[in-house]
Design a protein around this nucleic acid. Structure first.
Lengths: 261, 261
DNA sequence: CGGTTCGTTGAGGCCCATCAATCTATGTGG
DNA sequence: CCACATAGATTGATGGGCCTCAACGAACCG
């Protein structure tokens, strides 16, 4: 919060540069729709960068959010719950993701956003971002790009939740995270993995106990390896074959047509 | 298709009026962000209105879509499938819904859009809509509004798929449709319901057989009544109580805050 | 070293899937 | 008007994948 106002008036000063640097590499920063000056405009809109502990609500269910939260580092989730206490994550946030994109359009979110690990959160004022989106086509396009991407991912998650077995769901989630984290090197993949088995259960609509047993299955088949919070996928292709994983829904790389357009 | 070009040049002529009329009442027409002239611009962008049979693909899985399809009448769905043939609908389209909103941003959709009944489809050229969205703030805002609404609905569906019993899922779906179709009169509701039990199964991640048994349960409890393709909910509140339904996620009515903004 | 979180294991049972018919309604052609 | 085909709804029997309940083990930490 300190340094927020100066960064707006003195472009290029030390504070602005430091704030800005926290956006580098995040998904709104690497958007292919942004011009250099639009990136500067985003960087100058940062009002705070703070570190928060695990299990911190960035937005509580049903509450108002005046800011857009960027998960610059650490993991977070969107969560929903039933009356009876059943929890379901409709989205996972990995480093670089926008936490509450929908807050740009909604005053209240019917779900919450919560950190799963200690995290670095970059805060951007909602009203300012709405104005920037209207003023800068590239910024507007970035936001309107991210929304359908979320939707596409959630659609595939629905397919998993509705029609795949526990083993397939787990293989699919790990295949997805491997791509989203850009962790693949040839047919191998390895990445920091802070999720507990209960987090995975809340993502896949299962119980932590069954996640445990399913992970053992994949482990004994040599499909995954876990050691000190690191996930290793020795054979990405085989893991993908288990669940019919096709990365196109992640829209990571622009399709050939999109480049022409 | 006939009359498409004239409708662009001769505003207010008979053809333009007829085309335009097919948009009246649809979700992009009733958007609260649109000015009168923006509605005219949308109406003039209509290139065809056609009737198609049930089980017609508007967009096939993984294929390109050059147009935005409005389901002016009839029902449709977004669908995804696993390799093994398991089907899951990540969205249902009721009369007035936009069929393939995401086509505005994506060249290829990783899911398909298919009619479930005979339907009236209004076609709007994609490139034209992108241009209109850029040119008219209200049109752009309408599209960027619809995307997170879809996302919010899908998030709640994920909660159902992951954490609710068959009975709760069915009660929740019917509660949702009752609101979306604006079919409620006090505590009662009644609406045309063309879905087969297999469609419901593909929506809720269950089998048609289990849907059948679950419907019988709700019927015998007096929670639903079905007769010649009409669904009757004699006691909406009790149905909602079964599943903890809260309509706020549908964002049908602007929240108090949104009106102030 | 006690507390807490997370992972692991076992026993038992239910919800829902699977397989296999039958029944009804609708439509179609002769 | 009937024979026939087809789609959709319904019913029964059986089984399995995952849940529930209840511990116990392991790692981390102040």
């Amino acid at each position: 919060m300190i340094g927020a106002q100066p960064s707006e008036t003195l472009s290029g000063n030390r504070l602005a540069t430091r704030q800005l640097s926290r956006l580098v590499g995040t998904r709104i920063w690497t958007s292919r729709f942004l011009s250099r000056e639009e990136r500067d405009a985003l960087g100058n809109a940062v009002v705070s960068t703070r570190s928060v502990g695990a299990n911190t609500d960035l937005v509580r269910q049903g509450e108002r959010a005046d800011s857009l939260f960027i998960v610059a580092d650490g993991w977070a989730c969107r969560y929903t719950t039933t009356r009876e206490g059943g929890r379901q994550f409709p989205a996972l946030r990995v480093p670089g993701d926008v936490g509450n994109l929908d807050s740009l359009m909604f005053d209240r979110l019917d779900y919450g956003v919560r950190t799963l690990t200690q995290a670095t959160i970059v805060t951007l004022p909602r009203d300012r971002m709405v104005a920037l989106a209207a003023q800068h086509p590239g910024i507007g396009r970035t936001f309107t790009w991210l929304a359908p991407v979320e939707n596409a991912i959630l659609s595939i998650w629905a397919l998993s939740l509705g029609r795949r077995s526990a083993k397939e769901r787990l293989a699919h989630l790990l295949s997805e995270l491997s791509v989203r984290l850009d962790a693949e090197d040839g047919n191998e993949s390895s990445f920091a993995f802070p999720l507990t088995q209960e987090h995975i259960a809340d993502t896949l609509g299962l119980t932590n106990i069954h996640i445990n047993r399913t992970m053992q299955q994949l482990r004994s088949n040599g499909m995954i390896g876990t050691a000190n919070r690191t996930m290793t996928l020795p054979d990405v292709q085989s893991l993908r074959d288990i669940c019919g994983f096709d990365l196109s829904y992640l829209h990571i790389k622009p399709s050939p047509e999109a480049q022409l357009a």
